[in-house]
Structure formats: structure tokens, C-alpha cells
Amino acid sequence: MDNFSKTDGDANVLELALSLLVLKQEDLYVAYCPSLELSSYGSTIDEARTGFDEVIDAYLEYCKKNQSLKEDLKRHGWTVIDQKNHIKAEPPATVDLNIITTTPKVTLNA
């Protein structure tokens, strides 16, 4: 989990704890943040991560413009602590389901 802090230049601070998954799909790497349902991609892990930084910046700019950040985070299950000039948001809890998978036995008729 990465901590993400951002200021808007007006002494307002946003602090988020983000989990970012990187998946390889064919020749591309996909960076996916399940707690915000945002993603990016690149031909390397670094490109995917850099792309995600651009996506999160665009997301926050959109939310700032529409004054919708707190409501959007809550819609995604986040807990939002709003203090004067400082918003701290905790993502929804993750649960380890401990699902045991097995490979099904398949019989092919020749």
C-alpha cells in the first residue's frame, strides 16, 4: 500500500493510502487501483506506474473542479476524515478469502 499526499497549492492537503496492483496482459502492464477503480497501462512496469500517476492527478483535478472528492471516495467505500485544510481518507478494508483452488481434471477423447 502506497501513501499518496497531494496539496492543491492553497495549503489544502489530501492524504490517501492506495493499493496498486500491476498485472501483465500480453505485452502490456496494467496498473490497477481497486479501491478507486482507476487504471493505466504501459509497455513496462515503470510506464504503467507513471501512467497511473497521471490518471490519479486527472481524477483529483476532476473531483476538485466538481467538488465531488469526498462523495466519490465514500461511494467507493472509503472512510473520510475531514480536518481543516487536511483530508485523510482510508480505503475500504480488504478481506483475504483464503480460497483454495484446484485444477479440474479434464478427460479428452482422442
Rank of each mutant, 00 (worst) to 15 (best):
N3T: 09
K6E: 00
K6V: 03
K6S: 05
T7S: 15
G9F: 08
D10N: 14
A11L: 13
N12H: 07
E15H: 11
L16E: 00
A17F: 08
A17R: 12
S19W: 11
S19Q: 08
S19G: 04
L20S: 01
L23D: 01
Q25G: 03
D27I: 15
D27W: 10
L28F: 08
Y29T: 04
Y32M: 10
C33H: 02
P34W: 09
S35H: 09
S35G: 10
L36W: 08
E37T: 07
E37F: 04
L38T: 06
L38G: 08
S39M: 10
S40R: 10
S43M: 12
A48Q: 01
R49W: 08
T50I: 11
D53E: 12
E54T: 11
I56E: 02
I56Q: 03
D57L: 15
A58E: 08
A58N: 09
Y59G: 08
L60I: 11
L60T: 03
L60P: 00
E61A: 15
Y62V: 04
C63Y: 02
C63I: 08
K64H: 09
K64E: 09
K64A: 15
K65N: 07
N66V: 06
N66E: 07
N66Q: 06
N66A: 12
Q67V: 13
K70Q: 06
K70W: 01
E71L: 13
E71P: 00
D72L: 14
L73Q: 02
K74I: 13
K74H: 01
H76A: 14
G77M: 09
T79R: 13
V80M: 10
I81F: 12
I81V: 11
Q83K: 15
Q83R: 14
Q83D: 05
K84N: 02
K84Q: 03
I87Q: 00
I87P: 00
I87S: 02
I87E: 00
I87G: 03
K88I: 12
A89R: 02
E90H: 13
P91E: 11
A93E: 07
T94E: 01
T94V: 09
V95Y: 05
D96G: 02
L97W: 01
L97G: 01
N98Q: 10
I99R: 06
I99H: 00
T102G: 04
T102F: 13
T102L: 14
T103Y: 06
K105D: 01
K105S: 07
N109I: 08
N109P: 00
N109E: 02
A110Q: 01
A110W: 00
